[in-house]
Design a protein around this nucleic acid. Structure first.
Lengths: 142, 142
DNA sequence: TATATAGAGGACAAATTTATCTTTTAATAA
DNA sequence: TTATTAAAAGATAAATTTGTCCTCTATATA
């Protein structure tokens, strides 16, 4: 797996939250979990984490829920970093502590560009872009 | 993490086994675990799995251990498939069941070529190639 | 045949990830 | 102020991955 299950849920939840935010509404965890097909409470925890990391916002009480302040744009990499960190882009494929550009493992030179590309894709993909496609019914979230 | 810890150990152990096989010797789990810096018994389990999947061979008793029949060449992909399966190359990054070429997730088109490249690299990298570099002291296994 | 060697296999345990449930806190609105 | 709503937080549990230990089986060799 490229990303942890938590991170997959995080991305899908964030897309849904961005989607409802565009409609001027806040999304509650019940609604979100239903929309993306994930365990409700667990999804709540993940959204709390995203909220703490300022990827999105939350409000308690009536009409509360999760939302995204549309003044700051979120990129996929923000979500991935918040949940999985960035070892995906930095750690050695073979798990070697001694692996580095200077003393590379036998896969280093071939894998490095792939990791860079992955990082680049995650960095340029905005949540807004993903929401647009979702609004066009181009895909589901489960 | 791209690969599971088990798979990382598997690759490193396989390189070491191929290395000792080239020297006409068999490697025992104590020696292997020491060489690659991994938990001994756990490494034994992993090697058993590789043996069952015919990636390498084993022999019991005195002078026994793990070895690789040099008539069949092993590629990295064989090890990865044996331990982690191939969901790394096939599963959706966002964890969507509904994701496919026909109904792609918003990352599908960008990630697909990366997964193909990863698969290609793993498919063309032979254990022998990795051993050669190891023999030249180009890297360590821990 | 007896003994020592070394992997195979099973049972078990620790650690991590994923998932659930309950209580607390904050906010809204009546 | 009170009741209600919904996230935050904490405790607990299930599942998976990682790691350990002990016994069994096969093999070599004396």
């Amino acid at each position: 797996m490229l990303l942890s299950k938590s991170c997959e849920y995080a991305i899908r939840a964030a897309v849904y939250v961005a989607y409802t935010s565009n409609l001027g509404k806040r999304a509650g965890i019940i609604e979100i979990a239903e929309a993306i097909g994930s365990p409700m409470h667990f999804t709540g925890k993940i959204l709390q984490a995203l909220s703490r990391k300022q990827v999105l916002s939350s409000a308690k009480g009536p009409n509360g829920g999760f939302y995204i302040d549309d003044r700051h744009s979120v990129f996929l990499i923000d979500i991935v970093r918040a949940i999985d960190g960035d070892e995906l882009f930095t750690a050695c494929v073979m798990g070697l502590k001694s692996c580095s550009d200077a003393g590379p493992c036998p896969l280093h030179d071939q894998i490095k560009p792939l990791k860079s590309q992955l990082l680049a894709e995650f960095s340029r993909k905005s949540l807004n872009e993903m929401v647009k496609e979702y609004e066009q019914n181009r895909y589901f979230l489960k």
